[in-house]
Nucleic acid binder design. Structure first.
Lengths: 243, 243
DNA sequence: TTATCCCATTTGTCCAACAATCCTATCATC
DNA sequence: GATGATAGGATTGTTGGACAAATGGGATAA
């Protein structure tokens, strides 16, 4: 959870307090249904002002982790009441969790490719072609190339005409962006870049001719190789090209 | 966005201010990259204290809508930097958005069924069988039946052994829970309940014999009919049983 | 032109107070 | 004894003001 951005800007007091409170909740130190200490007490125990504690609690309340009511205090809500789907930073560090995240991303992207093949309009194709052109322009595996990759997937998701699919897809892509940058520094080979472009073009081809199964297969292959490039070990039972 | 819960508890000041600010951003009244008025100015223009404005801004910043820095002000971030995947209450009211959400749910649940068929262990099957037994016990379409339905899907997601798949699935299921309850009041027929149970049993059967394609098909059918029962019109290009 | 310093602006944090709401204990009534 | 009304303490919600820290820009000097 913790830091909001990949930036090294130090987190503010409310964020840190919220994280500490969340940790206490996750660890069961404060059980479900239980009421937190009063804001004043928390402020004193954390050594900050009540204002900071209030912002921290507001954050947790906003995510459906606790519910505070005037005069009663803040109670911890049941786990399945969480209001947002959020990917912790901790998950990005753990290798197995990263593989799981890639699996989720794969499931979504593959179906997105299939749906985009069925539903895309003219504007969508133009956007996708434009992104590929940009990828061609800069053959180096640099920041711009990563951004273009993200734009491709975003444009594809947009072509599904489903705001939720687009939302979850771009969210995961954004969370994975930092990871990609870190690991990708190793693979500065132009050959790999060219292969990535080829994979994208293959997907676009199948989408353009409205071949959903072909688009899905192309995307499955792309995800699989992207995972390979990043050294993420997917479970083989799922991502074999012919299932 | 607005109200957090279905409860009729009136929203607090910060929530309302955040909504008004968000509306101004969404409408383009405050463009991307632009800086908001200062907190003091906003406080004065909204007729609230600066503290309230601060909490509102904190909420928007937390979702990656704004980025505020000390001494500089709060700037509007590009739309695709949104940090959380969140299902607004407004989306649950809008019919088209509800259909989109069902589509996302379908995509996930279908693949979950397939993966569960491949990966489930003995404990998973026992749990799933237990849920079905509970469903059999109470033939009425009541609260317990809804809860058992949710448990079935949760147990299935758990069988994938992928925390993210489980997380996103249960999150969506929870957000859809209220909607199901509201609309389901109309369908108090025992026949429908029996058909739902039969669908679940069919899924479990395919999972148990480790037949991923069969499990996917069974789940696809289940999602499709569940949407029917709730009067949600899925787009037919996706959810035909034989694609 | 370029580098440095200074300063107004703006957010971050703190403090103290009052209002609104909730919970509980007490009391009155049946 | 049970039940309902009431009062009071406790806790969050909101306000207002103050200072600290960081940012950006402009003035100044080399």
């Amino acid at each position: 959870m913790s830091t909001r951005f990949v930036m090294d800007r130090p987190a503010g007091l409310p964020d840190r307090i919220a994280d500490r409170l969340l940790a206490q909740i996750e660890s069961g130190e404060i059980a479900e249904g239980e009421v937190l200490p009063t804001e004043s007490a928390l402020a004193q125990s954390f050594g900050v002002s009540r204002n900071v504690v209030r912002e921290a609690i507001a954050r947790l309340r906003y995510d459906g982790i606790l519910d505070s009511r005037q005069g009663r205090g803040a109670t911890v809500l049941p786990r399945d009441a969480r209001l947002t789907f959020r990917i912790d930073d901790s998950g990005l560090a753990d290798e197995a969790a990263l593989a799981d995240l890639f699996e989720l991303r794969g499931v979504l992207e593959i179906e997105i490719a299939g749906i985009a093949a069925l539903r895309h309009g003219e504007g969508d194709l133009a956007e996708l072609r434009g992104v590929l052109a940009d990828l061609d322009a800069g053959p180096a595996f640099d920041e711009a190339s990563l951004e273009a990759d993200a734009r491709f997937h975003r444009a594809l998701a947009a072509a599904t005409d489903n705001a939720y699919l687009k939302g979850i897809s771009t969210y995961i892509a954004f969370r994975l962006k930092g990871t990609s940058r870190d690991t990708a520094a190793i693979y500065r080979s132009d050959d790999l870049v060219r292969r990535t472009i080829a994979e994208h073009r293959h997907i676009l081809d199948r989408v353009a001719v409205r071949d959903p199964d072909g688009a899905r297969d192309a995307m499955r292959q792309h995800i699989r190789q992207a995972a390979d490039r990043l050294g993420v070990a997917l479970r083989e039972d799922r991502f074999s090209v012919s299932r």
